[in-house]
Design a protein around this nucleic acid. Structure first.
Length: 214
DNA sequence: TTCCCGGACT
DNA sequence: AGTCCAGGAA
């Protein structure tokens, strides 16, 4: 079976640091992670830049937008009714925490995750993205690209998000920087090489796997 | 399972 | 016209 350390090193060797999540601020990541739900990054970025121009992601500006204004601004990325509501909710939630991106007074990582999941519009994947890229925690993010890749690598339980998450733990020695980079590398790999079997079978990763078996 | 939703690509 | 895309809720 493929070792996660080997997978990370191999992806890193061939693609270099992923530089994920690309953003100028954590506020931009918070909003971007909502806007990109079930859409392409291209469309999410249209909404993200429009909202940045209008508010620079400042809490007082975002929270004072009317629902109609917010909806009009983020329209290109779709699901604008749901996403505009979630943006308001998550900004209120971070306001209550004083925009402190740390675990507070003895709260555990899993308590924080549950609290995030209680916010309408924040599901498994977005909660884990926040843990890794906002709160600097070490978490595995088995999104659709990750599950497709792991299926090809011979892992089981790859059909559903929580299913794979239960069966995979990142190596103990992983830092949060590596957890961030690992997820970024997998998604960059997925965009390029998981389009179909032929492309994957000709990828550097498929070749490295063959080499490692011989 | 179905609905939420726009844009790019086929 | 049909499909896909860094999902989530009911």
């Amino acid at each position: 079976m493929i070792e996660l350390n080997w997978l990370y090193q191999t992806l890193s060797k061939h693609m270099g640091p992923s530089g994920w999540w690309p953003a100028d601020s954590k506020q931009e990541i918070i909003i971007g992670a909502i806007l990109v739900q079930n859409t392409t990054w291209k469309n999410a970025d249209l909404s993200l830049q429009a909202l940045k121009n209008k508010t620079n992601f400042k809490p007082e500006k975002i929270l004072h937008l009317t629902d109609q204004e917010l909806i009009e601004t983020i329209k290109p990325s779709g699901f604008y009714r749901n996403k505009s509501r979630t943006i308001k909710l998550i900004y209120q939630w971070f306001n209550n925490r004083d925009w402190n991106f740390l675990l507070q007074n003895g709260e555990t990582k899993s308590q924080l995750r549950k609290e995030l999941l209680n916010i309408t519009g924040i599901g498994n994947e977005t909660a884990d993205v926040y843990l890794v890229y906002i709160f600097d925690q070490v978490e595995f993010i088995p999104d659709s690209y990750t599950r497709r890749l792991f299926k090809k690598l011979g892992f089981s339980h790859t059909n559903r998000y929580e299913d794979l998450k239960c069966h995979i733990t990142l190596p103990q020695e992983f830092t949060y920087h590596e957890a961030q980079d690992f997820h970024g590398l997998i998604d960059e790999f997925g965009k390029i090489y998981l389009k179909n079997d032929v492309i994957f079978n000709n990828s550097f990763l498929a070749k490295e796997i063959q080499l490692s078996k011989s």
